[in-house]
Structures are given as C-alpha cells and as structure tokens.
C-alpha cells in the first residue's frame, strides 16, 4: 500500500492559462495534474498523488477565506498522508498561496505538509511554520526541485526523524538540529576565512539573531510605599537545593520565602549555578541576592516592603526560551501579589 498525497497547484501549472486565467476558483481533480507526474515518478510507487487541487492565484489572494475553507473541506474528506504544494519558484502570489494553504492544512487538520519555492518568494516568510524546500527562481528549476521535494516528502510520510536543514534540504526554520559535517570545525573555519578574505561567497553556520525590545515602564513614584521583590538568575537556593534546580540548562525555577529572614548566610543558602566559581556565593549569598541591605532599607522606611518571596533560576546554559517562560510565569505572580518593582541580579 502506498502513501496517499494531495497536491496543490495554480492555474498555470494546471495548463488552464496564465495571468488571464488567474481568477479561476478552486477545483478538485482526481489523480495527478502537471508537475504531480514528477513527484509520482520520484516516489516509484511508495507514494502517489490521489487528488490535485487547482486554484487561480488571484482568486486565492482575493477570496482567501472562502478558497481556504473549500480546500480544507476537500483535504479533510480525502485525509491524505501528506499535503504538498507547488513548487512555486519565484511566483509571489502562488508562493503565498502554497505556504498559506499548507499552513492551514497543518494547523487545522494536523496533516503533514510540504511546499517548495525560491528563498526570496514572499511565501517563504512562513518558513518557521511549515517546511519549505528551497528551489531555483524559475520553473526551469523543476527538474531539480521535484525530486528534492519528493525525497523530503517521503521522509515525512515515513515518520523518520528530520535532520538539519542543510542535510534534508529545507529552509532553516529556527530549530537548530545537530548533525555531523564532513570536515572538522577548524577546517571549515579556515575555508570560510579564506573565502571571506578573497571576497568569495561563504555561508555562516549560525546567522546572528535580532532582538526584540520592550519599552520601559514608568518609574516608581514613592519608594517608601513600594513593595520590591528580589529575583536572580544566579541560582541562589535554600541550602541543599530542595527542588533540585539543575546546575546548567535548568528545567524549572525556584520560589522561596524570605519572610522574617534578616540576611542570607552560609548555613541557610547556597547557589545551584554551575557556570561560575560558586565559592563566594556559597560563603555569603547576599553577594548575589542582597537580602541584608534590603532589610535595612525596609527598617529605615526607604522602601515600603521587601516582598516575602524571591524567584530564582540558573542562567547557565538555560535556553533563552525557558528563561523567558519562567520569568513570564513568575511576573504574573508578582503582579498578583501587588509587587511594584523588581531588582533582578545576574552572575
């Protein structure tokens, strides 16, 4: 028994016509149409296109909601192992349609999807959501694109583990995957440098990310009435690390009471952090979490109150996404507790 595939193409690849026929409404045909033949040939019977959706590019753009509903209904009924769209090369509206409909099929029907297009196609903006095989910028690249897409499609249908983007030939999707290169890192570095020095093209293995920003909140008006909380990424925990926060790559954060605690000391607190020399923090945890000073300010009335709970994580090797999740979670707790400001310390 072979895997069942539904294919999406536009009016042009269905041989209906060019721009003048781009208005045609979606239509469902049995079996393969046009480029579907190349997929079927690559799959050699292991998978087969059971139906093809044809839709005009302008129609999809102008009636996206209706077209999508119609196509989803057909795909749901057919319940294929994979939904494949395109390849769209550098056709902008076609690429957009392929990516959008594929994403809808994945999100709403939970069916595996794949599409292919040129890297600068606007449809490629969805590359973090669906797998997109990079292709040449014109249909002349079909001979290469079809087998490449067919190969990855078959891997998906078989449920095999996805390799790194450069191994399995999809556009980098923000998920880093390890794999073994042919040459060791130092050799790759020397080659990359020689290309850079000669002004020849080179591909970085890790493109630098861009960072988002959050606007600052208004200042605290009156410190003497404010409740201030202490938080740290320096891993300060009660002695013995009762919640087993990992020394690196932590999977959870700690919430601990300091109600009635005048100062931290060697007997009561230590650090779980594995990234720095722990000796100083273990000997005197106030060096990371300044409970002693905050208590003095509280007594003096300089601040209203030191919040009874402190929040702690280990920054060392902990993924940014986890750290973000921890902080977002305890920020809500702080809000509910009426905390007015936070001092966050890092090691």
């Amino acid at each position: 028994m072979s895997y069942r595939v539904v294919h999406y193409i536009n009016q042009f690849f269905a041989n209906i016509g060019g721009e003048e026929m781009a208005h045609v409404a979606p239509e469902l045909r049995e079996g393969f149409v046009g480029p579907g033949l190349a997929f079927n040939q690559s799959w050699k019977g292991e998978a087969e296109i059971v139906a093809t959706v044809v839709c005009g590019d302008s129609h999809f753009a102008e009636h996206e909601k209706e077209a999508q509903e119609q196509i989803l209904a057909w795909v749901k009924e057919l319940n294929p192992d994979l939904f494949i769209a395109g390849p769209a090369f550098n056709a902008g509206r076609y690429g957009y349609a392929c990516a959008t409909i594929a994403n809808a099929v994945k999100e709403q029907l939970g069916i595996k999807v794949l599409t292919g297009m040129y890297e600068e196609n606007p449809g490629a903006d969805l590359k973090d959501k669906i797998l997109i095989v990079p292709t040449a910028n014109s249909a002349a690249g079909m001979r290469k694109a079809a087998p490449a897409m067919a190969k990855l499609a078959l891997k998906l249908m078989k449920g095999e583990k996805l390799g790194a983007s450069c191994e399995d030939n999809y556009m980098p999707n923000g998920i880093r995957v390890n794999f073994f290169e042919k040459e060791r890192g130092s050799k790759r570095a020397v080659k990359m440098l020689l290309n850079k020095l000669a002004d020849k093209p080179f591909v970085t293995e890790y493109p630098m990310p861009s960072f988002d920003r959050v606007a600052p909140n208004p200042a605290v008006k009156d410190l003497s009435k404010a409740t201030i909380a202490l938080c740290t990424s320096g891993g300060i925990v009660p002695k013995g690390n009762p919640d087993h926060i990992e020394s690196s790559s932590a999977s959870h954060y700690g919430e601990y009471s300091i109600a009635g605690v005048e100062a931290l000391c060697e007997a009561t607190h230590e650090t779980a952090h594995g990234g720095y020399d722990p000796v100083y923090a273990n000997a005197d945890a106030n060096r990371v979490l300044p409970v002693d000073v905050m208590r003095e300010f509280e007594r003096e009335g300089k601040i209203g109150k030191l919040h009874d709970l402190f929040y702690t994580t280990v920054g060392n090797g902990t993924a940014v996404a986890s750290a973000k999740k921890f902080a977002a979670e305890y920020a809500q707790k702080l809000l509910q507790a009426g905390v007015n400001a936070v001092i966050m310390t890092s090691t």
């Binding site: 959050v214 902080a327 007015n340 890092s346």
Partner: peptide, 26 residues
Amino acid sequence: MVKEIERAGIPVVHMCTVTPISMTVG
C-alpha cells in the same frame, strides 16, 4: 528574563556585571 518582567508591566532594574549582555537582551 528582565524583559518578561517589564512586559508584565513591572519596572525592573537589572544588576549585572556583563552589561553588554544586558543591553543585548534588552
């Protein structure tokens, strides 16, 4: 992490040694 606290609407001060990282993370 500071950014998430800021995002929740609480003013936050980041006390850290490696200020360039603090600048980079926002």
